[in-house]
Design a binder for these strands. Structure first.
Lengths: 330, 330
DNA sequence: GGCGTTTCGTATACCGTTATACGTCAATCA
DNA sequence: TGATTGACGTATAACGGTATACGAAACGCC
């Protein structure tokens, strides 16, 4: 069952069928009708692989850091809502939060002749990204590279989000505010955690307070010991801002287990406003990045880039603090 | 940069390079060394698309019902651990819990010349699955079709899991035990929810109790109203077994909000043992399906099927009840 | 009516691999 | 020694589409 089968059935040439498939120029209504009837009758479906060897595949690759991260579904749904309408398909690659793994997946997607790539929270360095982006239209979400010229970036304003948290904690009367940041051994200043850290430090300084950053291993590693140590320490802070709900939710639970009252003894604010944070029993204050919107914008940027735009676009979305019980009792 | 570039650089024929790439017969050590040196030097990567036109793509498709479902990551990781070693790549398709969407994705994966497919919790009917499975090696996870001959199935013993829950609730002294099942308008008895329902009904009958099944809309639709109505009803049951944590977690939170004590006034047991259930503040008893193991078994089955096995294999894994605070106070 | 100009359809080179058929040469065998 | 066998490389026809070049009508214009 190939394009040749269809051509024979419709009594036309192979090229004619191809033209109909591609909406190419030079097809009469009569021809189109004949061909479409045959396609329908035979249930023919063109091979993406063969198609990709010369033309477009109409398939986009989406790379997610980690499948268990609760923030990613919203971004994915945002992307999908846009690409669906435009008639593009999506293939997802899951990179276990390791840069090597991600590079492998990107290459795989290039090998599969995808038309474009959206990388969500990639841990790959700017230089490497740049090299890949020259080979395939690319949009990066959740990775700050505002000067990149070969790809677009869509980000939440992580600096501002952290400042909002510090200000809210300050207004709630807290002065002893610590931050839980991801221990980034690769020192990628472009990642979201360091950005939030900068915002935190700046806001603390602006309020005349001394910043105190505590680093924990990344989320794909166990880190309960570190959290427990923090809570048991004699100089336990009165408020903790966590770079992600992935840390804030376990911290909140651990505090509860250890008999520490939240927020009376310890206020906690997370980041991402994941579904778990919103559960009444958890009630974790958190920063909402509006992942859906970021996904939509990323997809739009990618489509326009595939459409020919060459000059890079860098967007920053202002986040929103969702106040809940872990910040303000009630 | 094609196979021809490499051939020219190494001073050999295109066929020779192809042979080296495929580990085919008739390659001397000297030739192999020359070719591999050129590949390394040029950084050549074969095109999967072109490769797929005649040979294998070494890429497997994994279809997930819904990206936000917290049970799926464990299955995915299980699959990955096996396929990684075997040198296969994975592409993920996300089907928004709609059969039409899933069919579309399956076709897309066939179009992309994937070597095999793993469908996780697919909602597609047995007949349709059968039609696709004839075109491409297929393994189905979380969908009971024990008589299917064209594809393999890997399932948790949902019937037994439900019975375990009823027995545990019975032993805890409960008699008024209801079940929250998914409202399956398509009436797919093969899905997991109806299987659990059967196990529940059987166990209730065995204990001499009257079953009481309450149906709620599927998880991609809002269903807070139904849950709230259940809790507010004058004949509110004393224990509820939920077909999934996706319902049990909101129910638990709602009960707490409405001042209903868990488990004193209402015992709740979920299914899937998702990460949220294990949080101390939630402490939801749940049935653990061991998704990781199911994923591993699915991948192994698929590889052996790709390897030539034609007779279908149907595996049933015994689940395990994880007792927590929502079932037994302490 | 002769001459460009569209419009429409066909023939076919090409995309980057794989796999088969085949040729060459040295080693082995009767 | 001539024939057979294996080992190793090469040439090349697929694979299933796309896109370009091109031919044949139909059309518009003076």
């Amino acid at each position: 069952m190939t394009i040749r089968t269809v051509a024979a059935d419709a009594g036309v040439s192979v090229a004619a069928v191809s033209k109909v498939l591609r909406n190419a120029y030079g097809v009469s209504d009569g021809l189109r009708a004949k061909v479409e009837a045959s396609i329908e009758k035979l249930g023919y479906r063109p091979s993406v692989a063969a198609r990709g060897m010369r033309g477009q595949t109409f398939t986009l690759g989406v790379l997610l850091v980690e499948i268990a991260n609760p923030f990613l579904p919203s971004v994915y749904h945002g992307i999908e809502s846009v690409t669906d309408e435009a008639g593009y398909k999506i293939m997802v690659g899951v990179g276990a939060a390791r840069a090597g793994r991600e590079a492998q997946l990107i290459e795989q997607m290039i090998d599969n002749r995808m038309d474009g790539l959206i990388l969500v929270a990639s841990q790959i360095s700017g230089d490497t990204l740049d090299r890949y982006a020259r080979q395939i239209p690319t949009v990066v979400v959740g990775h700050h590279e505002p000067t990149a010229s070969s790809f677009d970036t869509i980000n939440s304003d992580d600096f501002e989000g952290a400042r909002m948290v510090v200000r809210a904690l300050y207004e709630a009367g807290h002065r002893d505010i610590a931050m839980l940041a991801m221990d980034d051994k690769h020192d990628h200043a472009a990642d979201v955690s360091p950005q939030r850290e900068k915002g935190y430090v700046a806001a603390m300084a602006a309020a005349g307070l001394t910043p105190r950053v505590i680093r924990v291993p990344p989320s794909n590693q166990p880190r309960e010991a570190e959290l427990r140590a923090l809570l048991a320490a004699p100089d336990r802070p009165r408020a903790v801002f966590c770079w992600s709900d992935l840390d804030a939710v376990p911290l909140l639970n651990l505090a509860h287990q250890m008999g520490i009252r939240v927020p009376e003894d310890l206020a906690i604010v997370g980041y991402d406003d994941s579904p778990v944070a919103a559960l009444p029993l958890i009630s974790l204050a958190s920063v909402d990045q509006d992942g859906r919107r970021m996904g939509r914008m990323a997809a739009q940027a990618l489509l326009s880039r595939i459409g020919g735009r060459a000059v890079a676009e860098h967007r920053l979305i202002t986040p929103r603090l969702v106040v809940r019980g872990s910040l303000q009792g009630g």
